[in-house]
Write a protein that binds this DNA or RNA. Sequence first.
DNA 1: CCTTGAACTCAAGTTCACTTGAACTTGAAG
DNA 2: CTTCAAGTTCAAGTGAACTTGAGTTCAAGG
Lengths: 162, 162
Amino acid sequence: MDAQDRIPMGEVSRRSGFAASALRYYESQGLIRAERSPGGQRTFRRSVLRRLAFIRAASNIGLSLEEIRAELDSLPAERTPTKSDWHRISRHWRNRLDEQMAALERLRDGLDSCIGCGCLSLKHCGIANPGDVAAGSGEGAAYLPRLLRRDPLPRRRETGPT
Amino acid sequence: MDAQDRIPMGEVSRRSGFAASALRYYESQGLIRAERSPGGQRTFRRSVLRRLAFIRAASNIGLSLEEIRAELDSLPAERTPTKSDWHRISRHWRNRLDEQMAALERLRDGLDSCIGCGCLSLKHCGIANPGDVAAGSGEGAAYLPRLLRRDPLPRRRETGPT
DNA sequence: CCTTGAACTCAAGTTCACTTGAACTTGAAG
DNA sequence: CTTCAAGTTCAAGTGAACTTGAGTTCAAGG
């Protein structure tokens, strides 16, 4: 109602943990919305904080921004999400995690079965050459989910929190 | 010994499943070596195929090329790796996988504990805000291993296999 | 009014692991 | 000798998710 509860950039950045540049980027990508002050500066509604928490969580689960955007769009309008919204989504996320864990398990089992042999033969080793997908094509299959990554989450700076 | 068992680019590409451009790239990064024919074309030793299998496997485990390079350098010279080399390395890889699985498990447990509450509060939700690292700093911690990724492994083309 | 700090825009840069394109050469077959 | 696939180099492009920099303006305090 009252224009009073609009939150300015800096505060949203501080409270959400996202750098201001990230917030601007999310806005440009349609993940969040902002109104403008007469002078052209962004003002956010309180609900953006919940939205940002959602984004953070989803991205921790491993969803791309594009997927996150789609999922946010599936939450009707600017309404506070209900329990059933949340159930639907968390089921989805849980599947994601389960798939990833299963892929890692397959990989680990393949590795274990390789440890004895010292092999790593192009044609036989299940880990150099996991046949899951496209295994029919004669030579090296070379496909695997690839849901791995190592870096400790990118550098966060600018107006962001200390 | 004899110059006979040098393998040309196209064959290595076909047999390893790596695109020629990838092989050139790996050479430029010091992951593999190649001699040159009088005319300047690359010729590889048979051992490069084993090396490439290693690279494929390691990258499936989730190591960066930089880490792979380091690990390859730890295999003495151009000698065929012994069983104990392989044991050392596979232990390392297994740890990697175990860490990743553990991180996913923590994430999933956090998600499960969240499902009931429909929360996703910035300050309390363990999944929007997993406190593992840097949890001391008042507001949003915002750190998590981030060993996830979704894309089905990049496009492979050029002289690569069909 | 002046200063300072926070915000603004827009373009360009970053990282990783390659790929693509342009322009040219090699090598084997016919 | 001609032809053509396969090879060469080097620079630039790709995509994701932001960050950085330059140059400018806003908002609040003194």
